[in-house]
């Protein structure tokens, strides 16, 4: 089974649910369990929310693109924005780090805990691209063996 999808939408909070449901649907096509799909939805929600809140900082006219592919037993999701970008990616990925005092800084922690691999590319003033992978039929996620 091989399938691909590209979804492009404006940076509105209403679209976070749309993105996670679309990816969940594709994950279901390659045999992820229901509880796996729930975890994938959280990771997608975090990346898309970040694009909207941080990437576009409340602007509602920015594009967010979610690309999703399933091939064999692997799901690959990329979430991209053309917003402000991240100056220090390592810092941004630290648990409890947030540039917004109202937020918890757990978005990247959730993405890393719930997916097998997370790659972040970003340039200040250009935007951010987060790529996340998860296999349907490999063993425990790292958090299970810690």
């Amino acid at each position: 089974m091989t399938n691909r999808m590209i979804l492009r939408f404006l940076s509105l909070a209403d679209n976070v649910g749309l993105a996670r449901v679309a990816v969940a649907q594709m994950a279901g096509q390659i045999g992820f369990s229901l509880s796996d799909v729930e975890e994938i939805k959280v990771a997608v929600s975090e990346a898309v929310s970040n694009a909207i809140i941080h990437g576009y900082q409340g602007r509602e006219d920015g594009w967010v693109e979610v690309a999703c592919s399933v091939a064999g037993d692997e799901l690959v999701v990329t979430v991209e924005d053309w917003g402000v970008g991240i100056a220090d990616i390592a810092k941004a990925r630290e648990p409890a780090y947030s540039t917004d005092p109202e937020r918890m800084g757990l978005g990247f922690v959730f993405m890393e805990s719930l997916m097998h691999a997370v790659v972040v590319e970003s340039a200040p003033g250009r935007g951010t691209r987060v790529e996340m992978r998860r296999r349907a039929r490999v063993g425990a996620l790292s958090r299970d063996v810690q």
């Binding site: 929600s45 929310s49 937020r103 918890m104 757990l106 959730f110």
Partner: peptide, 13 residues
């Protein structure tokens, strides 16, 4: 049925 870190932030706040 669904909570992410934005939702959790409200609860923790």
């Amino acid at each position: 049925e669904f909570v992410d870190s934005s939702g959790l932030g409200v609860i923790l706040g």
